[in-house]
Amino acid sequence: MPELTPALIYGVTGIAVFAIGLVGALCAQDRLRRVLALKLCSVGAGFILVVAAWRDPPDAPDPVPHALVITGIVVMVSATAVALALIRRLQSLEAEDDA
């Protein structure tokens, strides 16, 4: 049994969140919810990277994974914005077809 540290706790959290997001992305039928699920996956991956950068004692963590996660967050918001624009467009087209 490994020692209980913040790294272990949040590492397991990250894996759990990633798994939840993966299931959601595959099983959700609503488009908006699928984007939400993929976003959960990205946060889970962020957890793992931040945990990998954690040091004991925690005063000087590894800054390179931190920079990678910040880059990832910005790339994710760009991807989310494009995905949501596609969803808005699709929904408008479908509404026009129905009318």
Partner: peptide, 8 residues
């Protein structure tokens, strides 16, 4: 923040 990553 708990994992000492305030920037992230």
């Amino acid at each position: 923040v708990r994992l000492s990553a305030p920037d992230v």
